[in-house]
Design a protein around this nucleic acid. Structure first.
Lengths: 112, 112
DNA sequence: ATTATATATCGCAAATATACGATAATAAAA
DNA sequence: TTTTATTATCGTATATTTGCGATATATAAT
């Protein structure tokens, strides 16, 4: 049991779900805010501000990387992370499309 | 270990994360699409279309209920579910605010 | 009253996610 | 070259999510 059934759904809904999952922890939203607010994005500064251990922050950064929401470059002793605006805006548009789709389809209905 | 640290973050980021979590499975996005596309929202029709067992669909519906994204009323032998537009639009606005916040803060920066 | 139908809940198994200490890897500094 | 500093990864413990069969619950139909 508990076999993964996510592949049974449309690619669009899978993509939306993956984005939502990347956003589904307040630590990751907080990291995005921190990255957006800094000119130079250094991982160490993130760890200092976050109420989590270094290993945990690194793990959250990795998930944001996998989702494509941030970019990371190794810069000598430090690592530099910043928001990947290309995919970020794409995701934003995709979510607005979802919200729009739902509202337009159901706009002339009164249910429940 | 693995104690929940979510309370250490701001209420806004917790709320956004909770919404994102509700959206973080393609089955739940698919359910929202189905509810939006139907005039009368009957749970049975959802189960028929979804590639999941009845018990699993019922569980996903419960999670959408908990997140406030849908409303449900017991209607005789059947249950009627539909989208809760009030909270839904609120959530949409909140997400757009997040995206907007991040972009405005970082609009004049070129990093990485 | 019995049967059939629709949905929710329980209990369990498996998979993922969360969190952190310890350690590895890498580069700057001494 | 040894030390120090920064970040990633490994291993592990625990918590949560996902999925479903079985069962409970409640109404409609017979």
């Amino acid at each position: 049991m508990a076999i993964n059934k996510k592949e049974a759904f449309t690619p669009i809904d899978q993509k939306l779900a993956d984005l939502a999952k990347a956003m589904s922890h307040p630590a990751r939203i907080a990291i995005l805010r921190i990255l957006a607010a800094h000119n130079s994005c250094i991982c160490g500064e993130i760890v200092e501000v976050m109420p989590l251990a270094q290993a945990t922050v690194s793990q959250h950064l990795k998930e944001l990387l996998n989702a494509g929401l941030i970019k990371g470059t190794v810069d000598g002793k430090k690592s530099c992370y910043c928001i990947n605006w290309d995919t970020f805006k794409d995701f934003n548009a995709e979510f607005n499309t979802l919200f729009g789709d739902l509202q337009i389809i159901a706009s002339n209905q009164s249910c429940c």
